[in-house]
Design a protein around this nucleic acid. Structure first.
Lengths: 146, 146
DNA sequence: TCTGAAATTTCTCAGCA
DNA sequence: TGCTGAGAAATTTCAGA
C-alpha cells in the first residue's frame, strides 16, 4: 500500500468502470501494472468490490431514517447482526459507544413502512427503546479517499 | 424503469466492473442492449456513477462516528451543506425530523481527530449542541436493491 | 519482485436491419 | 431491440531492471 495504490483507489472511487489504461495514465503505470495492483488489493481485502451509485428514488425508496436502538442489558454484536440483517429495509447497522447501543439505517418506500420496520425491531425482547430520526434531505455523501 | 432495468441495477451494484455481455446473460439481453439501457439510466440520473468499496482501515480511517447536530433557530439546508462539505472528515450529512436537526457521518484516523472535527462543527455560530456516537463496529452495510 | 512490451482473446459501441 | 464489424480494452505470457 504505497502512493500509487492510493492513487489507484482514488481513480476507482471516482469511476469504478475506468479502464486500466486510463487509470495507468493518471498514476504513471502501464495497464497490466494497474491490473496487477488492483488484483492484489482485492485479494488483500483492501478493495472489497465495485458497485453502482443508484438514486434511491429511482427504485421507489423515498423514505429514509436513522434509528437509535437502546438495549436492555448486553447483546452481542453477532446477535444484533443476525437480527437486523433479516430485515430487508435495514441497509446498514453499527454498534456505538455513546447514548445509544446501535445505530440502524433504514430505507423504505413510505413512512408506514418505516414504522413497520421500527415495530419489528422492537419485537426483539432485549430492545428497551428506540429513537428515530427521519431523513428530510440528504445534503451529500462522498466516497472516502479525501 | 422496468424489471430488466432493475435487474441490471442489481448486477451493477453487485459488481460494477461486470462486462455488458455478462450482465446481458443474467438479464436476458444482448450486450449492446444492456449498454443502451445503462447509458439511458445514467442520463436520467438513476445511476449516478460507479465506485469502489474500500476497506476504510486500509486507508488508515480507523475511527468513525455519527454526530447529531442541534441548531439554534432555522438553518437552510444549503448553508448546512456549505459548512459541512468543507470538513474533509465529514463523509455524509442528512437533515432530519426528530430530536436533532442533522446527522453527520465522520471518519477519521484517530479519536483526537474526531474531537477536532466536532469542535470545528461547533464553531458555527448557529450550532447549539452536538451529541456523538462513536462507532465500535460496523455490523453490516448493504447496497440498496433488496 | 517489480515492471513494460507483445500477442491473443474478449469487449465496446457505432451503424444497420 | 438484435446483429455485425472495426477498433479498443483486457489479460496472459515473456523478458528486462
Amino acid at each position: 500500500m504505497d502512493t500509487i495504490d492510493r492513487d489507484i483507489i482514488g481513480c476507482l472511487t471516482r469511476d469504478a468502470r475506468a479502464t486500466y489504461a486510463e487509470i495507468g495514465q493518471q498514476v504513471g503505470l502501464s495497464a497490466p501494472g494497474v491490473k496487477r495492483r488492483v488484483d492484489a488489493m482485492r485479494s488483500r481485502g483492501q478493495i472489497r468490490g465495485f458497485t453502482a451509485l443508484i438514486d434511491p428514488s429511482a427504485l421507489g425508496w423515498t423514505t429514509e431514517a436513522y434509528v437509535e436502538v437502546y438495549y436492555d442489558g448486553n447483546v452481542s454484536a453477532k446477535e444484533l447482526k443476525r437480527n437486523l440483517e433479516q430485515i430487508p429495509q435495514v441497509v446498514g447497522a453499527w454498534t456505538v459507544a455513546g447514548n445509544a447501543d446501535a445505530i440502524v439505517h433504514v430505507m423504505a418506500t413510505s413512512m408506514g413502512e418505516i414504522e413497520e420496520v421500527v415495530e419489528r425491531m422492537r419485537e426483539h425482547a432485549k430492545v428497551e427503546r428506540t429513537r428515530s430520526a427521519i431523513v428530510m434531505s440528504r445534503l451529500f455523501e462522498r466516497s472516502r479517499t479525501r
